[in-house]
Design a protein around this nucleic acid. Structure first.
Lengths: 169, 169
DNA sequence: TCAATATCATTTCAAATGCAACGAATTTGG
DNA sequence: CCAAATTCGTTGCATTTGAAATGATATTGA
């Protein structure tokens, strides 16, 4: 293969990174405007909404954030009063992190805005194509799942039916 | 809309970020093993291969890296001997950055490996689905292009036929 | 012509990040 | 029962990062 034929702009990893980063930045405008949240904090809040009182490790295992990043995000959220920490019930090492009323109310603001942006992004795409899109992403994940050099996927990111991916066409 | 229905794992921006980061990390293993390159350095090298002697600003405008990041990546590459700087011909402010022979040879190593990983990622996807996949990404970009809150796209990332996107189905 | 403005690359600085180390708490295995 | 090993959350530390400032050069416009 001739290296000169290589175009960055058609290189899959590059394309993914560019779109992902552009989308993330667009969302950050929204998070920031409403409550000054960074991506890590947004992920933590959303996870807490669904899972109630959980540990740092739980969050780390679910939302693709390194442990120190979760710890610091939680600290910031606690300072802002959106989250509270409590001593773990049985295990003294665990910290039970949960939403405060203010946190719940912040999410009530932000989730609709986030959903609106998501819908906006998808608005020019038919639902068949969107299905195919997600299916392709899942297949790429599946390839990486088999790759010993790749970082394992978190359990939460596994497709519900990952064991039997239906063909999309 | 009920915020409790919101799942992070089905949120498009989150999915994009997770896949993109996983792919990037997998590639970094490859870059790092061969020549200790970071993503920014890889992008700069590839751009130079196609564009010859260019300025920092040119690189910044083409490969989605902030200006300081390009500047530092170039410095590192120069230290490693993969790149050389020259005084800009006409304009004294410009720096003419170009590949050295060592840089070209490093690319000859890395590009096949990168291409192999790209092919690997796409190996479980039919070419129709892959077409749809890229088409969907392009449509999302197009939506952001209309959004004043979104960061503009670089010229290089514009699809060649972005003005008339063919339907994929 | 030459002052005001703009552009270029670099550097400064504060914040974010990830790896590794740490102390505390728990579990394990003899 | 207790010492070794593991797991938990946090923190130290070095690196990376991006926004803004800087100094140098070019361009503009009066």
């Amino acid at each position: 293969m001739t290296p000169d034929d290589f175009h960055l702009s058609s290189f899959l990893p590059y394309r993914l990174a560019v779109l992902s980063e552009r989308v993330s930045r667009r969302l950050s405008v929204e998070y920031g405007r409403t409550h000054g949240l960074a991506v890590a904090e947004w992920r933590v809040l959303v996870h807490l909404l669904r899972c109630g009182a959980v540990s740092v490790r739980d969050i780390h295992n679910c939302v693709n954030l390194e442990k120190p990043r979760v710890s610091r995000a939680v600290s910031r959220l606690e300072t802002e009063g959106l989250v509270q920490k409590a001593q773990g019930a049985g295990d003294g090492r665990l910290v039970a992190i949960s939403l405060t009323e203010a946190g719940r109310s912040a999410l009530a603001d932000i989730i609709p805005a986030a959903t609106r942006i998501e819908a906006y992004l998808q608005s020019a795409v038919s639902s068949e194509d969107l299905n195919t899109f997600f299916n392709v992403m899942e297949r790429m994940h599946a390839v990486l799942d088999e790759d010993p050099e790749a970082k394992p996927r978190t359990a939460m990111d596994l497709a519900p039916d990952a064991k039997a991916i239906p063909a999309s066409t």
